[in-house]
Design a protein around this nucleic acid. Sequence first.
DNA 1: GGCACGGCGATTGGATACAATCTCCAGACG
DNA 2: CGTCTGGAGATTGTATCCAATCGCCGTGCC
Lengths: 219, 219
Amino acid sequence: MNETGFRRPPTAQEAVLAELRRAIVSGQLKPGEQVLQDALAEQFGVSRVPLREALKILEGEGQVVYRPHRGYFVAELDVADLREVYLMRDLLESEAVRLAVSLLTADDLRALTAAATDVDEADAVGDLVAMAAANRRFHFILIEAAGMPRLARLVRILWDATDAYRSLYYAEPDHRASVHDEHHAVVAAVRSGDADQAVVILRQHREHAVEAVTRVLGG
Amino acid sequence: MNETGFRRPPTAQEAVLAELRRAIVSGQLKPGEQVLQDALAEQFGVSRVPLREALKILEGEGQVVYRPHRGYFVAELDVADLREVYLMRDLLESEAVRLAVSLLTADDLRALTAAATDVDEADAVGDLVAMAAANRRFHFILIEAAGMPRLARLVRILWDATDAYRSLYYAEPDHRASVHDEHHAVVAAVRSGDADQAVVILRQHREHAVEAVTRVLGG
DNA sequence: GGCACGGCGATTGGATACAATCTCCAGACG
DNA sequence: CGTCTGGAGATTGTATCCAATCGCCGTGCC
């Protein structure tokens, strides 16, 4: 029996997929850059076959684009793409949160509060990676509480699509402060069962992120 | 220069992907069934490599599920999944249509009307496959007119997810009749610029499909 | 009878080798 | 001077082969 949460990927393609995600989020693979299969396969210590299968998954999620006989390229987002992704997130997440508020268990609420605290603590220590991870946990506790796994999966893909750019937002101390305030406001609204209020705050929350990233991309 | 709209797939994986989609829609591959790679590869006259890459695309779209070392299985939808997919379609398509109505060109409107006519004609001839294709064209003219390619892509994936079950709806003559009425009501609403009205009709349109398929699945 | 163990056949996962295609650039031609 | 042509090299696409894993079933033990 494996008591730990750890579980090594049972296949090379899954391991490579995780590595590719890391490389994209961390900026090792930059938007627009071609993914050279031979080089990456060697770097990961696998052949090109599992690498290509992992790339196909990312292609399906829109994180890379594929051009036959030319290869895979890390997806680039312009401002229009960004606004589109956030519009879709608004539509899907708002619905999820509305449903979630009436379904939240005491455990969910505890986990939500704990995640908000984790965000604050990571912020205090200056660990931006941990902060992003905790932030993601916070939001997905709400979204998954709606009990709609397919919706949650789509939202996850939309988050991933902008991962490469989200770090720009967290880099600013001001933004990190407003993240703190907004998270706790969401917890308060959810705790009192006010779904509409939670939706409004979360919408502002996203809007702030869009504005910040738009400034960077457009300027 | 290639004047025809034809373009043979430049790679085997794309050809196989198209064949797999056909097989799923037509019911040759039934929900829950395992996709035996050796058999299918031989049937398509290719090796397993391009087949596996095509399957990875379908996995990303949720049309097949993958279990490591066990293989790929055609996705099964229960009633909850169906409702979830249609809820997401409602959220995304309603927004797209609202935007589209104010952006529609005269050409779009002509194409929309033509597609509605095509649906009617296919219905009259009893060609259900052509009817489904024309129906799809009709709806995506509207959705794509919103000028949001990513949203259109997601909606397309959601449509594909229920393709295996949609044929159940078209099998009923009564349903085909209401499709006719609803399409023309949508055209009228769109033509007069009444986005809200179009959204309402389209929502009923979807609701009818959900009810019909739910009856089949649940009974 | 029930349950753990282990080998066998079937199927998938991955590495290697080769074929097909694209990109780029030099050189011929108009 | 611009355009077309035609390799050479690099990169991707696919086939084939072998290794790893799973599920099943018979066996032996308790």
